[in-house]
Amino acid sequence: MIDEIEKKAIAVIAQVFETMFFTPVAVQQGEGEDLYSPIKSFSAFLRGEIGFEGKHCGTLILSVPVELAKTMTSNFMGLEEESASDSQAVDVVNELCNMICGNLFSQLDKKTVWNLTIPQTREVSGQAMDACNGDQAMSVRFNAEGYPVQLQIQFTSAA
C-alpha cells in the first residue's frame, strides 16, 4: 500500500508544481541516501503540515527551502521584480500541502471522504527537522529549480 501511495504522490507532486507553480520537478529515488532523514544542506526551510483522516490517518509534511518557496510564490502570484513576502511564502506552502494532500488521497480513493485539517507552516532549520519513523512512513525527495524538497507522510493507522 505504501508503494502505491508513493507512486501516486510522485505524480501528484509533479502535477501540482508544474500546473500551478510552473516549476518542473525531478524525483530522487534511493541512490544510497537515507530518504527518511532530514535534508541538512539548506539552513532554513518552510515546513508545512496537514493532517488527514479517512481510510488512512496521519500527517503529510512538506519541507521547502525558504528561497525556493519565495521563487514559487512569485511564479504563483505573477510577481516580477517585486519579491514575495514571508507571509505570502508561508501561505503558498500551506496551499501546496493542501493541494498535494487533497489530490493524493482523493485520487487514491474517490469513494472515501477524506477530512483534512487546516495546514500549518513554520520556519525550521535543516537540523531541527524531524525524521520520520520508517515503518509507518514514506518519504519522497525531489529537486525543484535546483533546490531539494522533501515530502513525508507519517501514518498513525496502518496503510
Binding site: 494532500c101 487533497g102 489530490n103 482523493s106 474517490k110 469513494k111 472515501t112 471522504v113 477524506w114
Partner: peptide
C-alpha cells in the same frame, strides 16, 4: 477546491 471525494 482540492476536494475530490464523490460523497462530498
Amino acid at each position: 477546491t482540492t476536494e475530490g471525494s464523490e460523497k462530498r
